[in-house]
Simulated scan of single mutants.
Amino acid sequence: MRLIQGWTKVSLLDYPGYLCSVVFTAGCNLRCPYCHNKNLINKNGSHYQIVWEEVVNWLSKNHQMIDGVCFTGGEPTLCSDLESMIYDVKRLNMMVKLDTNGTNPLVLKKLLDLHLIDFVAMDIKAPLDKYTQICRSNVDIFSIQKSVELIRIYAPNYEFRTTFHPSLLSIEDFHRICEWLKGIDIYVIQNCRVGNNLDPSFNELPQVDYKYIQDIANLCKSYFSKFILRGFTIPLQKTADSLQRV
């Protein structure tokens, strides 16, 4: 029996430009302190389980309304049923978006080779030399680099995105991320969600001068053809005309 750990039937936020369902899988190999899906980190987390066929039945009845399905987690590439679930979605002629931390390039490559993924969103946690510190886990940096290249070359659509927490990443760190990712099309900085984080000390965001956020944004805009700030509330009088926000 194929089981998932959570399901949002309709979302306007998780697949840029499209209406989607969001499927949550359990299990993650990282321990980022700001994680807001902490119940999905362990495969035996406290989230209730849903039989996958229930999702498929609902999608079958609503596929004319829903454009696609976003698989997220946890880390979906650790789910042994991921490929078969994606096939179920593609049989309904629906698009598939994958959210990933990039630690499993072999699974990622297979899904891309089979043309099962329409959009990949990969989290860039930090400059490469700070990955272990930020993720609080041993990270194979080669796998991260390999996933970036696979997505850049083979993904039909993609975005790379970094969660911003002012106590973890500096403008110098973003400069090194920009140098590393130079040449990709889309980069996103998303604000850290707080309130129920893995590390309780991250449940509140320290005050940040909006000028500092603008400086980071202006740096990124100089590297990428499309740069987006996501989830930041910036007063209009403090927002530079050149700053793109969604």
Rank of each mutant, 00 (worst) to 15 (best):
M1D: 10
R2Q: 12
L3T: 14
G6C: 08
S11D: 06
D14Y: 04
C20M: 03
V22K: 06
V22P: 05
A26I: 12
C28W: 03
C32Y: 01
Y34D: 00
L40V: 11
S46W: 05
H47E: 15
V51T: 13
E53W: 01
E53Y: 04
E54T: 13
V55Q: 05
V56R: 12
H63E: 12
M65C: 07
D67F: 09
F71E: 05
F71A: 03
T72A: 08
L78A: 11
V89Q: 01
N93T: 10
K97P: 06
L98N: 03
D99L: 10
N101L: 02
L106P: 02
L108T: 06
L111G: 01
D113H: 11
H115P: 04
L116G: 02
F119T: 03
M122E: 09
M122Q: 11
P127W: 05
D129M: 07
S137L: 10
D140T: 10
V148K: 10
R152V: 08
R152T: 14
A155P: 11
P156T: 07
F160Y: 10
T162H: 00
T162E: 00
L168G: 08
L168H: 09
I171Y: 01
D173L: 06
G195A: 03
P200T: 07
S201M: 08
E204H: 12
P206I: 12
V208D: 02
I213M: 05
I213Q: 00
L219V: 12
S222V: 05
F232W: 11
I234C: 06
T239E: 08
S242L: 09
R245M: 14
